[in-house]
Simulated scan of single mutants.
Amino acid sequence: MLTDPTFYLLAIPAVILLGLAKGGFAGVGAIALPLLALRISPVQAAAILLPVLVVQDAVGVWAFRKNWDREVLALMIPSAMVGIVAAYFLAAKVSATVVLAVLGAISVVFACYRLWISRGGRVPVSSNAPRALGAALGFASGFTSQVAHAGQPPFQMWVLPKGLSPQVLVGTTAIFFAVINLFKIPAYVALGQFTHENLTAAAVLIPLAIASTLLGVWLVRRVNAERFITIIYVLMIVVGLELLFKALR
Rank of each mutant, 00 (worst) to 15 (best):
Y88Q: 09
A211L: 15
L9C: 12
W62K: 11
W158F: 14
A46N: 12
A135H: 12
A14F: 04
P5C: 09
L235D: 06
K93S: 14
S79E: 08
E226G: 01
F25L: 15
R122W: 03
L103H: 07
G138S: 05
L49H: 02
L208C: 03
P130D: 10
L2S: 08
F183I: 13
V61S: 00
A225R: 00
T3L: 13
A92S: 14
L182N: 03
F143M: 06
S79W: 07
P13D: 12
I237G: 07
V52N: 04
L2W: 13
V98R: 09
V108N: 10
T200A: 14
I185C: 05
S126V: 12
G29F: 01
V168S: 10
Q152D: 15
L214M: 14
L36D: 04
Y113Q: 11
A174D: 02
L215S: 15
F139H: 04
Y8N: 11
N128S: 15
A174W: 00
L90R: 10
V108S: 11
L2A: 08
V159I: 11
T200N: 11
I117A: 05
A247K: 05
G29V: 01
S165G: 13
Y88I: 08
L169I: 02
A80M: 02
A174T: 13
R119E: 12
Y233F: 15
V59Y: 04
A150T: 12
A21Q: 15
L199M: 14
R222S: 05
I12Q: 05
L100A: 09
R227G: 10
P42C: 10
P51V: 00
L103I: 03
R227V: 14
